[in-house]
Computed example of a mutant assay.
Amino acid sequence: MEESKADLSWIHKKSTEIWEFLTSEKLWDFILIASLKIIAILITSYLVVFIGKKIIAKIFLLRIRSPLNHSERRQKTILKLLQSVLSYLVYFSAIMGILSSLEIQVAGLLAGAGIAGLAIGFGAQSLVKDVITGFFIIFEDQFGIGDYIRVNAAEGTVVEIGLRTTKIKGVTGEQFIIPNGAITDVTNFSINNSKAMIDLQVAFDADIEKAEKVINQYLVTLPEVHPELVGPPTFLGVQNITGTEVTIRIMAETLPLQQYAVARTIRRDVKDLLEKNGIPIPYPKMMLYDRVMGREVEGGE
């Protein structure tokens, strides 16, 4: 009985202490002041990030428009990176400020984090490799946002470059997220002009000189219609000969990544030109043997 009374007394005492603590003026003053500080920190952080990103974007927009010939793709890449770094720094500072508002010893946490970070660092070599590789990708301007590249098994347009990962949007809409440390060989299709090699077939007995003349008259008119062409396409001549057809080749130099559309247009127009000028296009033929007449008869497809 005495033990039960003692337990009840202890429970009553603790309940009273907790109730007094929860209803104390000091606690609610602390909650009110801490809440105001946290709200102020969050609002200030949001405004700093929002305004900071706008200022950074404005500065780089002026650099792109300046007559100093800054690379637009490089400026966009650095712009995104600086905006990300600004967000990380501001929000990290905001977290430290919130912890201080709650009277949590930030210095002790940072010291503990430093020791833990040293231990984790031995297992975070891939992360360090990603960051270092990402820095050199940006510093050496290997590729930038908007470039069409091929990296490992991924191919598409670069949508984001960070210090740790690179994001690539594929042709059919898929998104590749590649750790920078895994990037070894990069093929960038957006830096130099592209070339389209267009092979067309004409019949073996076609007049090649007439075909060349007709095609050249057409090719010289293309730069006026297609501004993506660097110059008039070139008729290279006969590329291959078989028993039934002759392959002729046309080369067109275009701005980066514009060769596919130009090649499709040239194939369509040259086919129409050859037909209009009576230059035969090869088609499959079948030889039939007439048993009655004892001779071969040429058939169609």
Rank of each mutant, 00 (worst) to 15 (best):
V151H: 01
L89M: 12
K80W: 03
V85Y: 09
I198S: 05
N152G: 15
F143A: 15
V262K: 01
Q175M: 14
S4W: 05
L127Y: 06
T242N: 11
V186C: 06
I138R: 08
A203I: 03
I168M: 04
W19K: 06
L27H: 08
P232D: 09
M197L: 13
I78F: 14
Y260E: 14
I191D: 03
I33M: 13
G52P: 00
L109C: 10
I215L: 02
D207G: 04
E253I: 10
A203P: 00
I33F: 14
G108D: 11
F122D: 13
R73E: 06
S87W: 12
Q75K: 09
G294R: 02
G156N: 03
G237P: 13
F30A: 11
G144P: 08
D29V: 03
L79M: 13
R63H: 09
L110P: 05
K80L: 13
I78N: 03
G173A: 05
S93H: 06
A107K: 10
T44H: 05
S15T: 10
G237E: 02
H226A: 04
Q259C: 07
P223L: 01
A113E: 06
A113S: 13
Y91W: 12
G181L: 11
I59K: 09
N240H: 12
P282E: 10
L257C: 05
G231P: 08
S71Q: 08
S71K: 08
I104K: 05
N152T: 08
G294P: 06
T16R: 13
L229G: 01
N277W: 03
A203Y: 02
I198F: 10
K5G: 08
L99H: 04
Y289I: 00
